[in-house]
Amino acid sequence: MDFLYTYIVLAEIYVLLGLSTNLLVGIVGIFSVSQAAVFGVGAYIVAHFMMAADPLSFIPSLAIAAACCIALNILVTLPSLRVSGDYFVVTSFGIQLLATAVFINWTVGTGGANGLPGIPPPDIFGLPIETNQQYVLLCTAASVLGCLAFWLIMRAPFGRLLRAIREDETAVAAAGKNVLRAKVSAAALAGAFAGTAGGLYATFLSFIDPFSFDLDASILLLTMIVVGGARTLAGSIVGPFLLLALPQVLTLVDIPTTIAAAARQLIYGLLLIAFMLFRPQGLAGERL
């Protein structure tokens, strides 16, 4: 049963990350490959404040992490205002590598490659979250709120504006709209989602290391969006639940543990290619 709870909690955390990535990549068309870096910053910040000599409780720590991730995501998305399309992917790739380098080498702040153990469990206004059931409740609440926010945005004029920006920024400006402000707002929102996911992740696992937030993780997020379906709420939910089930399914197949991780990466890669070729709209999305 523990295994099922863990799966649900992780999938729900990845739903928040899926929303973050889908908003930028699917809706606005900012092809970010550095969402895992923002996720990581959220995780490390929450860990830092909850493990400080004079520790903060979970909610204030999460608020600080979300605020920092909003600022960070705006900052890393800003180049997309100047460099477009393919060039931004390269910039974003660089940001991801830079973040990984900091996570690994800034030993004082992040524990370096050894990671950061002993992160305390969260509490909601004094009520400690310790059992798996409580965790599922917390993460379900967070992911439902995230999905609700995403849904509200997509049916509001803001959602229409973001989709129009993806199609033609010049035409949006000619229609009298502020493209810069809309993009910054979307980046802020995506940052808040990723930061929250980071905080939940750190306190749930109680241990984080740089390898949860590296380029592979960013690409996994993109794969989730492509397989689940870009541009839709359903796609952001289906993708994480499906792809996180894959390692569990692999444990049922009789392969040596030494090659299990490699096999997983291989299957993620094959899925990404197959979906791009044969079903670019994913299982529940629109054509990317």
Binding site: A149, L152, I153, A156, P157, F158, G159, R160, L161, R163, A164, E167, D168, T170, A171, V172, A174, A175, G176, K177, R181, A182, S185, A186, A188, L189, E286
Partner: peptide
């Protein structure tokens, strides 16, 4: 032309309307 090809005709026109409530995330949410 530079129309928004994936949006319907109505949405293309609505993009032009100024000062709509919910055109930023805080109001929309």
């Amino acid at each position: 032309l530079r129309l928004f090809a994936d949006l319907n005709a109505l949405d293309n026109v609505m993009i032009g309307i100024a000062g709509q409530f919910g055109e930023e995330p805080v109001g929309a949410i």
